[in-house]
Design a binder for these strands. Structure first.
Length: 469
RNA sequence: GCGGCUAUGGCGAAAUGGUCAACGCAUCGGAUUGUGGCUCCGACAUCGUGGGUUCGAUUCCCACUAGUCGCCCCA
């Protein structure tokens, strides 16, 4: 029996939908007014539609930051010779099961998966590497003349998580991948590109942490050693750690609750399980980083959340104060064997990805001033109907000549038009009214100096160009 | 998936169980009939949504939604 009242959104825990007969169109809003348990009247109305949880609109004023970051990222990729690749936003779910790993959190609880009308199992990409590697194998880029193949991508990724500072359900990642080389110098290059990019953006409080996960044999041996180490006394650890013992014993090492347990300090380190090749490889990467004056710390507990990583792994964290709980700006590592996993030849690879959202937060946390220019060249202050008409082609002429120009569209008073010009940061105001139209010359005011000049309307664009120089 | 906090105009932000809900910024209008930045005056809110308690709720209670912080995990 329903209580008397209004119901909307959900009724008996089922969403209320109003749809047409063909079922193809839904307006997810309407209301039921219950008079008693059985009588009700419907009132259909549209509720304001809100942005989906964990997503954001990037509005003018904010989007300029994004553009700047994107430009900078593209620029540094040119310098380092990474070429852009664009892959679909959704892929076969299978791709992520096999690459990211079907026991990882990303796959188990964070994927936006769906079936299309043809019954295909698809997933909105939760990360970028899998698709790039798939494309590399599918398009046989390993046969390309220039090797290694160095790629970058930039675009939205999707993970179903509870939003929090620095965490969104749709977020934009920039990432690079270098495929086809097993030279430790390429590992160092990938890391240096990331560090160099952040440096150029103006971030200072950064911490680079690296580790080697070794090859799959060393990882396996280390894993067994860890399980053996903690197993006998796992009862003394927190609930999360007890799960981790099976799932990902390395994670126990950076548990915040059990940090001080005596078994933590004596736990076996991955670095003791590296074979000679892996060890030497790691040494070489560190040497190269030092040679480039890149500061780093080795953290043997650094693990990455995706299954495909091996050998070099790294993270860049912000140490800016008040940055919140999520400090990782960038994460990456080597993934030898991944290309094979998705059906290609055995080609090694390494890459990283960072989120633009977190970069912007870090820039804000460090109060970095970005060079965002927004001034326009000319604002036309038109008074009277004739002048307003005249301003239409004039505005077009200015813009065609390459000037940024604007006029009033709200029929505002001259005073308000000047205010608008001011707000846009206009360098000049062009004033036309009846007098000017009659005399054939317009007043041009330099809004910074207040200086005012007359320019002939007949060759206004040329004269204005000279004035701007 | 779990827990804490929050929800007042375009933005920021007070107060209050009871006639018109402070203030600041922004915006628009006026003082100044065609010249911005300063000053003064004026205009501008069905208090997230839905229920409940009450004579009366923006205020108290519940649910929902959203935001936010933290856990898990990650970019």
């Amino acid at each position: 029996m329903l209580q008397k009242g209004w119901y909307h959104g959900k009724l008996n825990s089922r969403p209320l939908f109003f749809g047409t007969r063909d079922g193809g169109f839904f307006v997810p809003v309407f209301c039921l007014r219950i008079h008693n348990g059985t009588n009700y009247e419907e009132e259909v109305y549209r509720m304001a539609i809100q942005i989906p949880r964990g997503t954001q609109d990037i509005l003018p004023g904010e989007v300029e930051k994004w553009q700047l970051i994107e430009d900078k990222a593209r620029e540094i990729c040119r310098n380092y010779q990474y070429k852009e690749i664009r892959t679909p936003i959704f892929e076969h779910t299978e791709l992520f099961l096999r690459s990211v790993g079907d026991t990882t959190d990303i796959v188990q609880k964070e994927m936006y998966s769906f079936q299309d009308r043809g019954g295909r199992d698809l997933t909105l990409r939760p990360e970028g590497t899998a698709a790039v590697v798939r494309s590399f194998a599918e398009n046989k880029l390993y046969g390309q003349a220039s090797q290694p193949v160095k790629l970058y991508y930039m675009g939205p990724m999707f993970r179903y998580e509870r939003p929090q500072a620095g965490r969104y359900r749709q977020f934009v990642q920039f990432g690079i991948e270098a495929l086809g080389s097993q030279d430790p110098a390429i590992d160092a290059e990938v890391i240096s590109l990331a560090m160099e990019f952040y440096r150029e953006m103006g971030l200072k409080k950064l911490r680079l942490v690296i580790n080697s996960l070794g090859d799959s044999d060393s990882r396996k041996a280390h894993r067994n050693a860890l399980v053996g180490h903690f197993q006998p006394r796992i009862g003394e650890f927190c609930e999360d750690c007890r799960h981790r013992l099976e799932k990902n014993p390395l994670r126990i090492l950076d548990c915040k609750k059990d940090r001080d347990h005596e078994l933590m300090g004596s736990a076996p380190s991955i670095l003791d399980y590296l074979n000679d090749d892996s060890r030497q490889y790691f040494e070489k990467v560190k040497d190269y980083l030092s040679a480039m004056n890149i500061d780093f710390a080795v953290d043997p507990t650094l693990v990455r959340g995706l299954d495909y990583y091996n050998h070099t792994a790294f993270e860049i964290m912000s140490e800016a104060e008040g940055f919140g709980a999520i400090t990782t700006l960038c994460g990456g590592g080597r993934y030898n064997g991944l290309v094979q996993e998705v059906g290609g030849p055995d080609v090694p690879g390494i890459g990283f990805a960072f989120s633009i959202e977190r970069l912007i937060s870090a820039l804000e946390a460090e109060a970095v001033e970005l060079p965002l220019k927004e001034a326009i060249d000319c604002y036309i202050v038109a008074m009277g109907e004739e002048a307003r008409d005249f301003s239409v082609p004039l505005l077009q002429g200015l813009r065609r000549a390459g000037f940024s120009a604007e006029r009033d569209y709200l029929d505002r008073k001259p005073k308000a038009q000047f205010k608008a010009a001011d707000r846009l940061g206009a360098k000049f105001a062009l004033i036309i009214g009846d007098d000017e139209l009659q005399s054939g010359s317009a007043e041009v005011k330099n809004l910074e100096s207040g200086e005012q000049k007359q320019l002939p309307l007949s060759e206004f664009i040329e004269e204005f160009g000279k004035l701007c120089q």
